[in-house]
Write a protein that binds this DNA or RNA. Structure first.
Lengths: 211, 211
DNA sequence: GCTGTACAGTAACGATGTTCTATTACAGTA
DNA sequence: TACTGTAATAGAACATCGTTACTGTACAGC
């Protein structure tokens, strides 16, 4: 889409001039588009290469293999989630926390394919590296920060913010996961989600987080 | 399920059907063993046939394809879950409900591969049929029954039992799902799980289920 | 014993991720 | 300018997957 080579220059020259970076981002853009448009099943090395106008060999030199591409998409998915969660700017701590919950669900619903890659092992052979895993914890830390402010504001009883954040994440994830799989009908999914969030929040207000 | 030719119940037809049924259960046993031993990735038509000592053609005549086998395993997974949940025989309604939650987690932990098939789309092309989906709701109804008794006993505030059951299931599923994926460390998984269950239960005791 | 049909085994087809091989395009030198 | 070396690429090949066409075979009914 960008990085049009100068007239007369060959692909080789372009790759060399811009380093692999341009080719790399172009490949990731293609993979991302393919993932969102046709789902994880359509994410094929040959298809990425075809849409990119090169052979699959290039993908192997850049990413090492399909797992390399999968990991980048995995990271992109968590980055989107992180931006969605951190984009909630409510001044009130509890409102921010519940807003983050809604942002979590909204992000999952509008990035279903990414969510499948992140949490449903949609790309068969892929397992995230420890490095990628560590990076994926950023949204959880954002949640924990909001929880900590709730505790400081006296809205939540004193407890380990990270513990509470993990519980809240698990609740959100469970509701959204079942909704995305199409389980138990999507009709009341939003109501169910908010009910679960309220339940968890109420519990931590009364100090249940300590037991 | 059916596949009985049925027109004219000649002894040969029934004998053939019996042989058919025997091969069918043998194939499912092999598939199940393969699934549990080597994971969903090892569930291959050729491999099932090899372990069974026949060609893949047989599997296609019996199950129609890999999706047919996947659906049987899917149903078996939900059947195990159902048996685990209904096996809780606590007389006290609330104790039974929390016991069911623990049974849910225990069943998932000891049937990881099945859980992956059921909730993580571990078999790429497989989508459960509407029939299978309906059958998979049995454990949810068991949960709803326990909830209803909690309401009748005055432990839970009056509300739609199915609604509460779904929320509880979502919470359980979220915690277990993250635990199975290896997310957020498995160290405090049990504590986290119980915390979430207590939070949800407490919420419905105070009548949060109506709002 | 013969015929027809339904099933099983073999081999093939298309597609996948991955790798091997040969070619090509460029940079640096004499 | 011509040569050499290196890096990247394309294309075909390999192993595997789900699936299916073809072929033989074994059994029920006459």
């Amino acid at each position: 889409m960008d990085s049009e080579p100068a007239p007369g220059s060959t692909p080789y020259a372009t790759a060399r001039a811009h380093g692999h970076a341009a080719r790399r981002t172009a490949a990731l853009d293609t993979a991302s588009e393919l993932l969102e448009r046709d789902g994880p099943g359509a994410l094929t090395m040959r298809r990425i290469a075809a849409e990119l106008g090169c052979s699959t060999t290039v993908l192997y030199t850049i990413f090492g293999g399909k797992s390399g591409i999968a990991e980048q998409l995995w990271l992109e998915g968590f980055d989107r989630l992180d931006r969605a969660v951190r984009g909630v700017r409510e001044p009130d701590p509890l409102a921010r926390l519940t807003g983050m919950g809604q942002a979590y669900r909204a992000n999952a619903l509008s990035n279903r394919a990414y969510y499948a890659v992140m949490f449903q092992r949609a790309i068969p052979g892929f397992e995230p590296s420890a490095q990628a895993y560590a990076a994926s914890l950023r949204p959880l830390h954002a949640l924990a920060d909001a929880v900590e402010e709730c505790i400081r504001a006296g809205v939540f009883a004193p407890a380990d913010p990270m513990h509470i954040a993990r519980v809240l994440w698990a609740a959100s994830h469970g509701a959204v996961s079942l909704e995305l799989v199409g389980y138990e009908g999507a009709i009341d999914a939003e109501e169910r989600y908010e009910c679960l969030m309220r339940a968890a929040a109420a519990w931590f207000m009364t100090g249940g987080g300590e037991g």
